[in-house]
């Protein structure tokens, strides 16, 4: 038999990998989440999650932390991206690169640096756990917010702004009616790059001595207790939140490259 080579066949190994290492684990998680230790179908894990005040509190705390972090990032990132994009600096691309570069440095080392600084300022990290976590998470995720906003702002059609000015619009009006609405795709992709990781990155909280649980820490604690079933339920809930978020923000394949690829 003659084996004919075709370009399509090159996708076979990767498809198999995706099926075995992406789809199968999710099915297994779904299975564990909906069964008990004896393997029988049950909704107990699901009910546990939504009736236990601890887990609901964790869900609420994660949302609050992620929300505040996202707002802080947005308030730093938007003006920075806007001022950079609209400036006439010759080296603005270099400045952008300097902002984005920390993405490439291991985050635990960066958080260590932030921790030492906060320790020196506050004396004891235990006084402001929520504030410290917001600072740490914003510090970690800021580049992911700046990059997409900057990219959309530089693609903005400048003639629209000139037209607005010719028609008598003030700077502020032109900004509110043209620049801001047109930069929403960048904001949305920045928000999705910050909000979801902020709900799950429990290591930042750990390193800054905030012992309150967020969604990510719950998985870890069930895992260390060998409770795959409840752990899987948490993972499933997280997946659902991510799904809803992705559909709402219309997750774009190109934006995913913001996770570090834009520099190369």
């Amino acid at each position: 038999m003659k084996i004919t080579f075709s370009r399509k066949q090159l996708a076979i190994p990767y498809s198999l990998v995706l099926i075995i290492f992406v789809i199968l684990p999710l099915l297994v998680i779904g299975f564990y989440a909906l069964t008990d230790a004896t393997g029988r179908f049950t909704l107990a894990n699901f009910l546990n999650f939504f009736t236990d005040t601890n887990t609901l509190g964790t869900l609420f705390y994660s949302f609050a932390l992620a929300f505040v972090t996202t707002v802080v990032c947005l308030f730093i990132a938007y003006p920075t991206a806007y001022f950079l994009a609209s400036s006439k600096w010759k080296f603005k691309n270099v400045v952008l690169m300097i902002f984005v570069m920390p993405m490439w440095i291991n985050f635990t080392l960066r958080i260590t640096a932030m921790k030492e600084i906060l320790n020196a300022i506050e004396g004891n990290l235990a006084f402001y756990p929520f504030l410290n976590s917001v600072i740490g998470l914003s510090y970690d995720f800021l580049p992911f917010m700046i990059l997409p906003i900057y990219t959309t702002l530089t693609k903005l059609d400048r003639s629209l702004l000139e037209a607005a000015k010719d028609l008598g619009a003030k700077d502020l009006t032109a900004f509110l009616k043209i620049t801001l609405p047109l930069s929403i795709p960048g904001i949305v992709s920045g928000v999705s790059m910050v909000f979801l990781p902020a709900m799950t990155n429990y290591v930042v909280l750990d390193m800054l001595y905030n012992s309150t649980y967020i969604m990510g820490s719950l998985i870890g604690s069930y895992f260390s207790a060998y409770d795959w079933h409840n752990g899987s339920m948490i993972a499933l809930v997280l997946l659902l939140i991510i799904c809803v978020f992705t559909i709402l923000t219309n997750g774009d394949a190109e934006d995913a490259n913001a996770r570090g690829g834009a520099l190369l």
Partner: peptide
């Protein structure tokens, strides 16, 4: 399917890989 690990939380990717 390629988008799943991209948007997924790393903690879920790690946990599910380990479980499987």
């Amino acid at each position: 399917v390629n988008q799943i690990p991209v948007v997924n939380a790393d903690v879920v990717t790690g946990f599910s890989t380990c479980i499987l």
